[in-house]
Design a protein around this nucleic acid. Structure first.
Length: 119
DNA sequence: TAAATGACTTAGG
DNA sequence: CCCTAAGCCATTT
């Protein structure tokens, strides 16, 4: 271990995404693009979507706190139904507009106070 | 290794 | 509010 910076990535993109998502506090939300940036891949918003789609069964993962840049929740899925996601968010005190969207100006997570492990 | 897929995003119409 | 076109990416075929 003669190096600390040129070391190989010991974590995959998906792993980092989950780590970031687990940092989102209760009552707050983050967008795919935001998570991508924090995970070290600013333009991989779509990759974050892929990671979340494959997250069924992952323990302790607040998947419902990840929404898109328009404030809309997941489009659907057996285990990720829009109504379910909305319900979970409302239980955390997040209110939706008539349009069914979340006001990011109010509920957007500011980001981690301390730096991330890989940054 | 190339092609297809999809919880994305921004800019326009 | 709904739809399309482009750009970008991880994952799966």
């Amino acid at each position: 271990m003669n190096s600390e910076e040129s070391e190989q990535e010991s974590t995959t993109f998906k792993e980092r995404v989950y780590i970031v998502v687990r940092m989102i506090p209760r009552g707050k939300v983050a967008t795919y693009g935001q998570v991508a940036m924090l995970a070290g891949r600013a333009r991989a918003a779509r990759g974050v979507g892929t990671a979340m789609r494959l997250s069924a069964g992952v323990v302790d993962l607040p998947w419902h706190r990840v929404i898109n840049a328009q404030g809309r929740v997941s489009p659907g899925g057996d285990m990720f139904r829009p109504e379910h996601q909305r319900h979970l968010l409302e239980l955390e005190g997040i209110s939706f507009r008539r349009s069914g969207t979340v006001d990011l100006k109010v509920y957007r997570w500011e980001g981690p106070e301390d730096g991330l492990p890989w940054e």
